[in-house]
Design a protein around this nucleic acid. Structure first.
Length: 565
RNA sequence: GCGCUUGUGGCUCAAUUGGAUAGAGCAUCAGACUUCGGAUCUGAGGGUUAGAGGUUCGAGUCCUCUCAAGCGUACCA
């Protein structure tokens, strides 16, 4: 239910009736329950334009406002706010409709677009570390979300599989003369060993350099070694994706090497546009108001990160047909993307109706507020972090009920991984955040376990109830009223989260929803003796819609729910 | 040096993009129950939104300056 735009339309009609020749601003949720369900703040801003007292304008709007259907009541408050109350009968009817729909009343977009979401992007030379977590799950959530809302989403995993370090790595792989399955089990160690060999052994270093050239010129033997290396490394990534319950598959991989042939064409295109300038031997694009140029070709003829990104951008627009391209990449690359987007626009690689956006995010920090590292200062492998989360989760739930070992293992996986994801996604992506096991695995506050607990409680309610639910929703008190309004707000929240690429809007919403439900549940008995049948059914239906909304919300974040906890 | 980002109770985070008395959780203190799962709920104390100006009917949010922190600053990705 697009609550806001429905109310907006009613206000619009009132504007026409009241002969106000301006477009009304969007309504917003009331900041406090006393102020109703929604509020319209446009009267104050109009006062200057219309040269009238804002309260008078508000009164004019109010007089023209249709309060016979969706709205029950409207009042003027303060300097000219218009507070709006929704009609309980209307709310009951709409929530009933939502409940009968698997999509909870959320329609797919009428005008879907093709969206490329570029996320995760690990480097094949090393294993995924904690730094890849945010890109992977924020990107995945965005992709899930847009897809749910009806857009055609194309997931792109832009892996780093090309560059000088691969010469060293495949030379070392060949020297070890294994099939790779043993020595590449720990990529991190393999990289270290290769580097040590490179530094100590002159002969090996020469060979490594030679192999760089050989892969690039298409030498069969070297390419085979390289392919083997990439396959194994990608296998590590897939293991992480599966563990994370993220929707990335091998098909979504478009590696850097994929664009090799397109790189010279990027240079040609830029040259044809007269944008290339040679500076200190390198081919550069100078941009207005940018201090440093974008270097697209090195003095030795080699290509760079920027060149590959431009080639990828062209591919996404021209071949994939993207109308929106979202790059979910660390905030430190802000300048890079700013420049790439400028070059792409100037070169005509994208038309004006294509939206390019850098979905920047902050860094994960430790308790002291320093970048998250191991005790000896190394990077934390993502797979280790996830495994630890599962172990910690099983410790948390072990003492709770008499679960079998299998049950604990299954639960711990869902809960542990879910806790990591939820903790990350619940924070405004732009800022850095402090990683804390204790907070993450707490049952209190805005955490995944609080959501899981609420969901399990509702499910338990239905197990206990057993029989069928026949009846309709009747809003009995203000708490039920607020809860139902909250439930119907779901679509507005998803739209906004998708627009801003901000998963934390979903978690904030879910937390508010669950808090409200807990209060409702505490105050309004459902299965207890003495509750009238109609009331019982109505409350069960509200509980059911709450559970379904929690489940759907978490699902979009890539988190599964559990029936028992 | 220049540029970008950030600064909100003791701690961790919000604030509907300029709206009403800045909200939550943790921690602290005080309550509720012969538990529809207490891993719950209710309440209290705790804030000059880093600081100083400015714009506006109205500023945590926009502008200017100062302070502090993080990051980026041409042939890595």
């Amino acid at each position: 239910m697009k609550l806001k735009s429905h109310i907006h339309n009613i206000i619009k009609d009132a504007f026409v009736k009241a002969d106000i020749k301006y477009e009304p601003v969007m309504v917003s949720e009331a900041s406090k329950p006393e102020f109703g369900d929604y509020q319209f703040n446009g009267a104050m801003a109009l006062s200057k334009k219309l040269k009238k007292n804002p309260r008078e304008i508000a009164q004019n709007i109010l007089d023209a406002l249709d309060c016979t259907g969706m709205l029950a009541k409207a009042e003027i408050a303060g300097p000219g706010f218009i507070n709006l109350w929704l009609n309980p009968l209307w709310l009951a009817k709409e929530s009933q409709i939502a409940l009968q729909d698997v999509r909870l009343g959320i329609k797919k977009r009428d005008n879907p677009i093709k969206v490329v979401v570029d996320y995760s992007g690990p480097n094949m030379a090393k294993e995924m570390h904690v730094g890849h977590l945010r890109s992977t799950i924020i990107g995945d959530t965005l992709a899930n979300l847009l897809s749910f809302l009806g857009d055609e989403v194309i997931r792109q995993n832009h892996i780093g599989d090309w560059g000088t370090q691969f010469g060293m790595l495949i030379a070392y792989l060949e020297m070890k003369d294994e099939d790779g399955s043993v020595s590449l089990k720990d990529l991190e160690q393999f990289y270290k060993d290769a580097k040590a060999e490179f530094d100590a052994n002159e002969e090996f270093a020469d060979k490594a350099r030679e192999y760089v050239v050989k892969i690039q010129s298409g030498d069969k033997h070297c390419l085979q070694l390289w392919q083997k290396f990439i396959d194994i490394s990608l296998g590590h990534c897939q293991e992480v994706y599966d563990k994370l319950d993220v929707n990335l598959r091998p098909d979504d991989v478009r590696a850097e090497s994929f664009y090799n042939d397109a790189l010279p064409k990027v240079i040609e295109a830029l040259d044809a546009k007269g944008m290339l300038v040679q500076s200190n031997g390198a081919q550069c694009v100078f941009l207005e108001e940018e201090e440093t140029p974008v270097i697209v070709q090195k003095g030795d003829g080699g290509y760079l990160y920027a060149t590959t990104d431009l080639a990828a951008l062209r591919y996404r627009v021209e071949v994939l047909g993207a109308r929106r391209i979202s790059y979910v990449v660390d905030a430190r690359q802000r300048e890079h993307f700013k420049q790439i987007f400028m070059v792409a626009k100037e070169a005509g690689f994208v038309s004006k109706n294509v939206k390019l956006e850098h979905i920047a995010f902050g860094t994960m920090m430790d308790k002291e507020g320093k970048p998250f590292k191991t005790r000896d200062g190394g990077t934390v492998k993502l797979i280790d972090l996830l495994d630890e989360a599962v172990v910690k989760a099983s410790e948390t739930i072990k003492n709770k009920e008499d679960y079998s070992k299998e049950e604990i293992d299954a639960l711990a996986k869902i809960i542990g991984i879910g806790a990591v994801k939820y903790a990350d996604l619940s924070i405004n992506r732009e800022s850095n955040y402090i990683f804390s096991w204790d907070k993450m695995l707490s049952f209190e506050g805005n955490t995944s376990l609080y959501m899981q607990y609420a969901y399990a409680r509702i499910r338990s309610l239905f197990r206990r109830h057993g029989g069928s639910i026949k009846g309709e929703i009747v809003i009995g008190d203000t708490l039920e009223h607020r809860l139902v309004v909250m439930l119907l707000r779901f679509e507005d929240v998803l739209e906004r989260a998708a627009e801003d690429a901000s998963p934390h809007l979903i978690t904030t919403y879910l937390y508010e929803l669950v808090t409200l439900f807990m209060r409702f549940y505490e105050q309004n008995p459902i299965l207890k003796d003495g509750v009238e049948k109609e009331v019982k059914m109505s409350r069960l239906l509200i509980a059911d819609l709450t559970a379904k909304t929690i489940k759907q919300g978490l699902r979009l974040l890539g988190i599964k729910v559990v029936e028992k906890l």
